[in-house]
């Protein structure tokens, strides 16, 4: 892959805190332009430390990183990045709009961008309200607006759904997916695997500061074919004939067949020949949680 296709590229990035705690250990992370990349891992895995290094808040102990073509923390690079690390932080005595005005001044951005950013996160009606009176969901959205005001090519969001109620989670999920369009790259971290599954194009699993799985996750999630049909006895006989008895398992009333997607047509023909009424036949995927637990050995 050409380097210019990568918006984030780290090589052996390492952070050891003064107390000796190794927070990030030789991390090689590659985020491609235009994708929504999920950095998944349990609490304390090193996600936030990694993101803090990428925006220059903390310095790596070893290793290198390039973010939006610049070293982390370089003003030229920061101007192309929008980031919300941990919870959004704003001035409680200022309104939502004035908080964004401060950000705009800091970023050398015209104040006209403020209302545009507020509109993008659906906060324009509450722009005059004091930040202190905002709900957690509104605070998160203001954080995203502050990140968007620079029209960044890379958006870094750390645990954006943390603490949100189900409605807030749905809204934030929709917002992140919409932000990942038009060539914008989104790097989002979370320990909520099911949420990431709904948002991201690719995942990296981080544990104890190391990236323990990445692209192979897509393959790992494939779990053969799921088949439902009537009568069940005749389905089993037909499947055993095509795939073999050892390749078949039953889960929640459905037959799970350890078979490749290309075998679906062959299996379908066999079921039809056996006179089975097929009600469902589709590729089965394991949840990200299942894969994650398998990769990490259940040490989440």
């Amino acid at each position: 892959m050409h380097t210019s296709d990568l918006v984030v590229e780290t090589t052996a990035l390492t952070k050891r805190y003064r107390g000796g705690q190794l927070a990030v250990d030789s991390l090689d992370l590659k985020v491609r332009r235009g994708e929504i990349y999920g950095l998944v891992g349990p609490n304390g895995a090193g996600k936030t430390t990694t993101l803090r290094m990428l925006v220059g808040l903390i310095r790596p102990t070893a290793g290198t990183a390039l973010v939006a073509g610049h070293k982390p923390g370089a003003p030229a690079g920061l101007r192309r990045i929008g980031a919300v690390i941990e919870n959004p932080a704003f001035y409680t005595y200022l309104s939502g709009r004035d908080n964004l005005r401060v950000v705009a001044h800091y970023g050398g951005i015209a104040e006209t961008a403020v209302d545009t950013a507020l509109e993008e996160v659906d906060l324009l009606p509450a722009a005059k309200g004091g930040y202190g009176s905002y709900s957690l969901g509104m605070k998160q959205r203001l954080g995203v607006a502050a990140a968007l005001i620079k029209e960044p090519e890379l958006l870094i969001l750390d645990e954006p759904t943390n603490g949100l109620d189900p409605q807030g989670m749905v809204e934030m999920r929709g917002l992140i997916k919409s932000l990942g369009t038009a060539g914008r790259t989104v790097l989002v971290s979370s320990h909520l695997l099911s949420e990431m599954q709904k948002i991201c194009d690719r995942f990296g699993v981080i544990q104890n500061g190391r990236l323990i799985a990445e692209d192979e996750l897509a393959d790992a999630r494939q779990a053969g074919l799921l088949i439902r049909g009537n009568p069940a006895g005749r389905v089993r006989v037909a499947l055993e004939r095509v795939a073999g008895a050892k390749a078949i398992a039953v889960r929640d009333g459905a037959f799970m067949v350890n078979a490749d997607h290309v075998q679906a047509a062959e299996i379908h023909r066999a079921l039809v020949r056996a006179g089975v009424e097929i009600t469902e036949l589709r590729p089965a995927e394991r949840s990200l949680e299942e894969v994650f637990l398998e990769i990490t050995g259940g040490r989440q």
Binding site: V55, G56, L57, P75, L78, R79, I81, A83, I85, E86, N87, P88, A89, F90, Y91, T92, V102, V103, Y106, G107, G108, A146, K150
Partner: peptide, 12 residues
Amino acid sequence: WRTLAAMLMVGP
């Protein structure tokens, strides 16, 4: 308020 880190990420 933890706002310093937020300002440092803006650009200057």
